[in-house]
């Protein structure tokens, strides 16, 4: 048996992702890495650093800033960018609102999440990026289960799920017409648990939001939201101190927390391994309708 030459599943996933990130650098003129500040995009930057070591990552990071980010996210982002020595581009939703590109939602459930799409597409166009690397995973949501590694987008940035290019072996077709671009998802095959285990095994630094901490929170439709200036509370929604952590990090307006005592990575992994609710179960943006992710993706959402 030649079993000395087998890889653990995490090492195999790492190798696959590095291969795809290198393909992007080789096949595209002007790629960019979409950075949200969440653990998946932190993993992406970490894998990109591995892919090109000892050279620097040969493309910039793009952050679509809704203006409703957790302050921890922005601090972490700026430190990471400095450490990696990469260029950071910021697409601002606030600017998009100010100049009339998008209109702010109103009311209690108002969120800037949906507004990111237009700003993202505008940023990609402005930077003339021909490939946008993203940290989406197929296990996150059912519409994403059918996503390719190299996902072709038309000149409007739209996804056409019924007419995707077949993707075989490790051969990737990056051909496109002028004005079109690609979204590339190197960590497609990772699950939430894989990401946590890998980050722990590699000792990758993460924002404190992912570990259990005390925070002022309130509960809306069964979801624990962080109290902040950017969310309007209903009169009956009471703020209380809770011990929570976040499983995904998006906008403060739509990212739900879970009650947790997991204050170390090891405890987080244990919690993830035994948990019974999906990661995006706390995302109110996915709950708007049964096919909300698919609808947003068709329009060019990441």
């Amino acid at each position: 048996m030649s079993n000395n030459y087998s890889l653990s599943h995490l090492k195999e996933l790492e190798s696959e992702s590095i291969f795809i990130i290198r393909e992007v650098a080789a096949q595209f003129q002007n790629p960019v890495l979409m950075f949200s500040g969440g653990k998946d995009s932190i993993l992406m930057t970490y894998l990109a650093a591995k892919a090109f070591h000892p050279a620097k990552i040969p493309f910039p990071l793009l952050h679509v800033d809704t203006g409703h980010n957790f302050p921890e996210t922005i601090e972490f982002r700026d430190r990471l960018v400095e450490k990696l020595g990469v260029k950071l581009m910021v697409g601002s939703v606030q600017e998009g609102i100010d100049k009339g590109l998008v209109t702010e939602e109103k009311g209690f459930n108002a969120s800037r999440n949906g507004l990111q799409t237009a700003v993202l597409l505008e940023s990609l166009e402005k930077g003339k990026y021909d490939a946008a690397l993203g940290g989406a995973r197929r296990d996150e949501e059912k519409a994403r289960a059918k996503e390719r590694f190299f996902s072709h987008r038309d000149e409007f940035g739209q996804w056409e799920p019924k007419n995707q290019r077949p993707e075989l072996w490790n051969l990737f077709n990056s051909k496109k017409h002028f004005g079109e671009h690609f979204r590339v998802f190197p960590i497609s095959n990772w699950t939430e648990l894989d990401v946590w285990q890998y980050l722990a095994e590699e000792g990758v630094e993460l924002p404190s939001l992912y570990m259990a901490h005390e925070r002022d929170c309130f509960i809306r439709d069964g979801i624990i939201l962080a109290e902040s200036d950017v969310i309007q509370r209903r009169p009956d929604e009471e703020v209380k101190k809770m011990r929570v952590r976040f499983r995904t990090i998006g906008d403060m307006t739509c990212t739900g927390a879970v009650e947790s005592d997991a204050d170390t990575l090891e405890k987080v992994i244990e919690e993830v391994a035994t948990t019974r609710i999906t990661e995006r179960g706390g995302r109110s943006d996915d709950k708007r309708s049964e096919t909300s992710m698919e609808d947003r993706k068709k329009q060019g959402y990441f």
């Binding site: 059912k142 519409a143 799920p161 019924k162 095959n189």
Partner: peptide
């Protein structure tokens, strides 16, 4: 495993979908 809208309407699978378990 039925992911996309049109698939659920027709009750058939129209594209490769990837699933994960351990």
């Amino acid at each position: 495993t039925d992911g996309l809208k049109s698939e659920r309407e027709q009750g058939i699978t129209i594209d490769v979908a990837y699933r994960y378990f351990a």
